[in-house]
Design a protein around this nucleic acid. Structure first.
Lengths: 236, 236
DNA sequence: TGCCATACTTACGACGCCGTAGGTTACGCA
DNA sequence: TGCGTAACCTACGGCGTCGTAAGTATGGCA
C-alpha cells in the first residue's frame, strides 16, 4: 500500500554533505534564496517537521501543504519522498515506535524485577521528556486504527511488547502467564497517562514522578511508602 | 463560542408522542414517507448518531452530512439544532463526561478504601462496557485540546476528579496530599488503557479484569496475589 | 376552512486540501 | 563549457466539506 515506509536506519545523517550550509536543520530557514538540500537531508527535515505538526495537530489536522511550507518547499517534494501524507506519517510512527522500544529495552540491565521496573519506568519518562512530539503521536489514535476496526491505540501496541518480559516473571513466580497482557496494559497505561499529565503540569521532578510510579506499581496503594526512593541510581 | 452546549437534563424523552408510527396511506408499501419527529426527538436521535460516528471515526473524520444522512434528514436540520458539528460534539462529550462521573461517584458507598477502590474500578469498567462509544470519545483527543494548547486529554480531566477522593485518603494516612493528582492519573490511566485493551480482546471476564486491576493497584507487583478475589460482592 | 408555526428540503457558494502533469533551475562531472 | 540528472516549482483538476439562503410540506388550532 504505502511505498516508502521502510525507515532507512540513518537517524541523524552521517554521510551527507550540506550543500549550502546555512543553519543546519530545522525551523528558521530564513531566506537564503533557495536551499536545495540533498535528498536525504530534505527527507530528514520533512520527517522532523512532520513529527512536530502531527503531534500538535493530529494526522487529519495536518495538511501536506503546511508541512511543505514549513520546510520552505512546495508540495510535490513531499510526494516525491513519501508518496503522500500517509507515507510520511507511517515513517514517523515507525521511527518513534522503534526509538521508544529501544530506549526501554536497552535500559533493562538489572536482575532484580523491582529494579527492572524502575528502569523501564525511567526509560519511558525519559522518552516522554526528550521526544515529546513522538510520544504525543503514539498516544493519539492512529488513522489506521479505525480502518482495521480495532480499538487498540499505538500505545497499546507498546504494552504488548512488555508482555514478554512480564510473562517470564510471572512464570517464575508461579502466576498464570496468560494474565501478563492484562498487567502489561495496566502498567503502561499507568505510566502513559501520568506522563501525559506530567508534561502539562511539570510539577514534581522526573525522578520523583518515577519514584512514585514505581512505588505504586510495586507496593500498591496498601503498602505505599510516604517517601519512596529509587534503588538503582542513575547519572541524570 | 458555542451556543447550545447546555445539556437539557432529559436523557431519554418521556413526554414525546410518536407522530406517525407506520405507513398509513392506502396505496401499498410506500416507504414510511417522511418521519417528522418532534424537535426533542430529533435532537436526541442526532445526539445518538453523533456519538456513534464520533466514536468510530473521530471528530474530524465525521461529516455533518453523514450524521444527517444516517438520521434520514438533511444537513440544515443539524445546524438548526446544534449550530454545527462542534456544537453537537460538545453536547455529546458533556453528556458522556457526566454519565461516567455519575456512575463512578454513585458507586462509591463503602467505607474501607480497598472497597472504594474496587467499586470505582468496577464502575469504570461498567461504563466502558455499557457505553463503549462514549468511552472511545473520551479517550480520543478532543479538538479542543490542541486549541487550548494543553496536552491533557478528556480522560485526564476525569482523573482530576478522582484527586479529591484520593486526597482525603492521603491526608488520613499522613501522605503528602499534593501527590494525590499523580496517583490519580496513574490509577485512571491504568484502568483506562486496560479497559481499551479489554474491549478489543474480551478475554477475561469483566469481574476478573476488575479483580486483577484492584489486585495490582492495591498490593502492587510485589504483593500480587495469584488468584485475587473481590471483597465486595455485586449483583451483576 | 384557512392560517401559521414547526419541521424539513433543495440548491448553492466558498473553501481547503489532495494529488499530479509538466516545466524549470542548480549542481556535479566529463 | 556543455550536458545530464537530481531537486524543485507553478498550476491545475477534482473532490469533499462546511455553512447558508430561500423555498416546501405538515399538522394543530382559531
Amino acid at each position: 500500500m504505502i511505498e516508502g515506509v521502510a525507515t532507512d536506519s540513518n537517524t541523524s545523517g552521517e554521510k551527507d554533505r550540506p550543500r549550502r550550509a546555512g543553519r543546519s536543520s530545522g525551523s528558521g530557514a530564513r531566506r537564503p534564496r533557495r536551499v536545495r538540500m540533498t535528498g536525504k537531508e530534505r527527507r530528514e527535515q520533512l520527517l522532523d517537521i512532520g513529527r512536530t505538526l502531527f503531534a500538535e495537530r493530529g494526522f487529519e489536522g495536518t495538511s501536506v501543504e503546511e508541512i511543505a511550507a514549513k520546510a520552505g518547499v512546495s508540495k510535490p517534494v513531499v510526494y516525491e519522498h513519501f508518496g503522500g501524507k500517509e507515507g510520511l506519517y507511517a515513517v514517523v510512527v515507525d521511527r518513534e515506535m522503534r526509538r521508544m522500544l529501544d530506549m526501554v529495552t536497552t535500559s533493562l540491565t538489572a536482575g532484580h524485577p523491582r529494579e527492572l521496573c524502575e528502569q523501564a519506568t525511567f526509560a519511558l519518562l525519559d522518552y516522554i521528556e526528550e521526544y515529546t512530539d513522538g510520544f504525543r503521536i503514539l498516544v493519539r489514535d492512529s488513522p489506521v486504527a479505525q480502518s482495521t476496526g480495532t480499538f487498540a491505540s499505538l500505545i497499546s501496541d507498546i504494552a504488548t511488547q512488555v508482555e514478554d518480559i512480564l510473562g517470564l516473571e510471572f512464570k517464575a513466580r508461579g502466576f498464570d502467564p496468560k494474565l501478563a497482557p492484562l498487567y502489561a496494559q495496566a502498567l503502561v497505561g499507568m505510566v502513559a497517562l501520568t506522563g501525559q499529565w506530567w508534561l502539562d503540569v511539570r510539577k514534581p521532578k522526573k525522578a520523583e514522578v518515577a519514584a512514585h510510579l514505581v512505588n505504586l506499581a510495586w507496593h500498591g496503594l496498601d503498602g505505599l511508602e510516604p517517601k519512596p526512593r529509587l534503588i538503582g541510581h542513575r547519572k541524570s
